[in-house]
Design a protein around this nucleic acid. Structure first.
Lengths: 266, 266
DNA sequence: CGTTGGATTGAGTTATCTCAATAGAAGTGG
DNA sequence: CCACTTCTATTGAGATAACTCAATCCAACG
């Protein structure tokens, strides 16, 4: 597996240098900075696959940083349907977008191989920091806005794209977010099961599986291992991930919905 | 139409008393408050159906408040597909969730009858206010978090619900957000076309139409006019809007996807 | 080496989409 | 005020992408 021994220590070291969300450090640990103490403290938690960190509706007392593995943030419907709203990967922070101090999502360890490690810290402390330092508060606000923009992009993906486009977009996103440790260039390890991917893309495991195999047959990706993916033809994948092939002459300027056609076959 | 003459003046008056987003006033105009001048100023704009306020990618210089009609905030794909991410209704403010000062969504007047009226104000001024008053900055942050939670709820709706559930949820939401001016108790006017609704719920106009007619046949709603809706059986709608009917004995605790079955017929 | 849980593959079903036609409002100009 | 156009909404019939159910495969693990 990718996230143990050397690999894991490397990730932990990077985390110690500054908490990140999507590439922007939340708290750069400059010596003497107000942020330094909070970045230093915190309790590491080690979770096995499926373990829950918190559930929707609970009071929100902590926020978290992923060190290794992956966390899924999901909504559950009373009848057992599940929507994975977001995956949190090593370096990401999560659990600080709560309204009125109540969890809006459920967070569970997703990584199926190895353990998922997170660092837990106090929300109260973060809040007092934000009150003391307006620039820090602004940073938090900006992070929330970025997540909002992300959620909007996902709405389009789920609302207006077919299975091929969803899976292609997901693979391209994961490639940029995961450390490319295995499988050479363009290769990475998916830290979650097909079921998790399906619940994220609003598909079934069967459709995810079939779509991956189709992308492989088409030469867009290679699947060197159960969880390993290597991007072979990024351009092809991007084409599939962005839109359906444009219709020729009678361009439907307002045809709002038209998922990719005839793409699973051959 | 509902939003002219008396009705419209009423809405404008309410707006003058304080800018609201989803029930929480953004700037309560207390005499002498720092917020008062900003709430007072601003240029009113009158738009005809389809007119664009701003487009994705443009620099974001202003924010807006809806006075009458409705605004749709949408994403457009290069091939003409559209996803209405949110509708902004009278009393709502929008256009202040931008990342790096660039529009992430396109905003257009949606209301098909009458004109859409918005008030435009300077983002710069809002930002300096936020810098001056941490409590105000906090309010802005909270509003963003609320919109994020809303986006998450919509992800579930689009990802894990069938057409009936989406339409039912939409009607219930609109009932709470729209002024109940026409059509008596539980009655309101949809300020957008079926196409807008379809692009919001990720359906086609045909499916929206068929679903509405089905809800009418079932006695859940009445459709006294083209755009008028009256909720007759809120309980039934809520049942349809929340989840598919629970399967009897063999409960699929992990069956993640199962859109409502056999609901369009009869 | 058998067991277990995830992943894949196959065959049939269906909810929703597409295409096409009709019906109804709203607006325009004589 | 009434034809005429135009846009929106509804209804019908057939096509299809994705789902469901079911079987098999495979890797990991005890």
């Amino acid at each position: 597996m990718a996230m143990d021994g050397e690999g894991m220590r490397e990730t932990a070291a990077r985390a110690a240098a500054g908490v990140r969300f999507s590439g922007t450090p939340l708290m750069a640990v400059r010596p003497g900075s107000a942020a330094a103490p909070a970045a230093g403290g915190g309790s590491p938690l080690s979770l096995t696959a499926g373990e829950m960190l918190y559930a929707e509706g609970e009071p929100a007392e902590h926020w978290y940083e992923v060190v290794a593995g992956a966390v899924r943030a999901c909504k559950l419907t009373p009848d057992g349907r599940r929507q994975v709203v977001e995956f949190h990967l090593p370096g990401d922070v999560f659990g600080l977008d709560e309204v009125d101090g109540v969890r809006g999502l459920t967070a569970e360890a997703a990584a199926a191989e190895g353990r998922t490690v997170v660092i837990r810290r106090c929300r109260r402390r973060l809040e007092s920091m934000a009150e003391a330092d307006p620039r820090f508060a602004r940073r938090l606000h900006e992070m929330a806005l970025r997540r909002l923009a992300r959620a909007h992009a996902r709405l389009v993906l789920l609302g207006r794209n077919g299975a091929v486009e969803r899976v292609a977009a997901f693979l391209l996103e994961m490639e940029t977010r995961m450390p490319r440790s295995d499988a050479g260039p363009g290769g990475f390890c998916l830290p979650m099961t097909r079921e998790d991917v399906a619940d994220h893309l609003a598909l079934t495991t069967e459709t995810v599986s079939r779509t991956l195999q189709m992308l492989k047959r088409r030469g867009a990706i290679a699947l060197p291992g159960l969880r390993l993916v290597r991007i072979l033809d990024r351009h092809l994948l991007q084409g599939l991930g962005e839109a359906a092939p444009l219709p020729a002459a009678p361009l439907p300027l307002r045809g709002a919905s038209a998922p990719g056609r005839r793409l699973l076959a051959a």
